[in-house]
């Protein structure tokens, strides 16, 4: 389990989990779950397109992630943000469907682009993943204060000359960057689960941003590690475990908080 190709899986999985935990923390804080779902889906269309004209899929992923981020930001400026996201998403997916219809792509490739192929990661993928991951985390570090300010106190941010719209677009681009690196590994659909469940659980458990960020990364790491091990043992797709465990964190956290406050109440009554 810790030899040969599995070493690649553990390494890449760890990088992906850290990035998803960090970026996802702000996704949840900003209520940006829908864009975080839409951008990877759009990126999937890019991979299909790159495949059609014989380019490196990573290039297609990158270009379409950025397009999706800018499209959501651009359309959202003049209309309802959720409508903008929905329309940008279906437009990208429709393009993806058109690309697929023209190519003779083999079904397992589509499946792995959507749901990931972490157990088939090759050692040549580690370096690009690491570099893109570092870039995403660095971008978040640079934006950290502005992200917190515009998420928590939009009025104060505006009065300090921070343009919330620009921060928003920059953040979506970071989500796109993270997507580009993670899609080939965990797939377009599952990176979303990883960016929502662990951070949401972390935020339920603590209201201090710093602690929540660390918790988020820890849950995300545990999710990926358990998923890889379980997938290795059972042969079931890694995406299944990532999706289900991510959601389970959140439910567990909510249940924990509920029981705690229930106990506190009981103690006070008695």
């Amino acid at each position: 389990m810790f030899t040969g190709f599995m070493v690649n899986a553990w390494q890449v999985g760890t990088i992906v989990a850290v990035v998803a935990g960090v970026v996802g923390f702000f996704v949840v804080l900003r209520g940006a779950a829908f864009p975080a779902h839409a951008i990877p889906n759009g990126a999937f269309a890019g991979a299909a397109g790159a495949n059609l004209i014989g380019l490196n899929p990573l290039l297609g992923l990158g270009v379409f992630s950025a397009l999706a981020a800018l499209g959501i930001g651009g359309l959202g400026k003049r209309g309802r943000p959720d409508v903008a996201t929905a329309l940008a998403l279906v437009l990208m997916l429709a393009l993806g469907a058109a690309f697929l219809s023209q190519s003779t792509q083999y079904e397992p490739e589509i499946y792995s682009l959507l749901f990931g192929e972490i157990l088939g990661v090759s050692s040549t993928q580690i370096l690009p993943t690491l570099l893109l991951g570092l870039a995403s985390v660095l971008a978040i570090a640079v934006l950290y204060r502005r992200l917190l300010l515009t998420s928590l106190l939009p009025d104060v941010a505006a009065s300090k000359g921070v343009d919330p719209y620009r921060v928003d677009v920059m953040f979506l681009l970071v989500v796109g960057l993270a997507t580009t690196m993670t899609v080939p590994v965990v797939g377009a659909l599952l990176i979303f689960s990883l960016m929502i469940g662990p951070p949401a659980a972390a935020r339920t458990l603590t209201s201090r941003p710093g602690a929540a960020l660390w918790l988020s990364v820890s849950f995300s790491l545990l999710t990926i590690w358990i998923a890889i091990a379980a997938s290795y043992q059972t042969n079931w797709p890694v995406g299944f475990y990532v999706g289900v465990i991510s959601a389970a964190w959140y439910l567990a956290a909510r249940t924990y908080v509920r029981t705690q406050s229930f106990l506190v109440l009981r103690r006070r009554v008695i």
Binding site: L189, S193, I196, A200, W236, V244, A247, Y250
Partner: peptide
Amino acid sequence: RDLATGIVLGAATGLSAL
């Protein structure tokens, strides 16, 4: 709302994968 939707969507995606 955003979170509730996201959590359900994330879990459902995992089930789809399976």
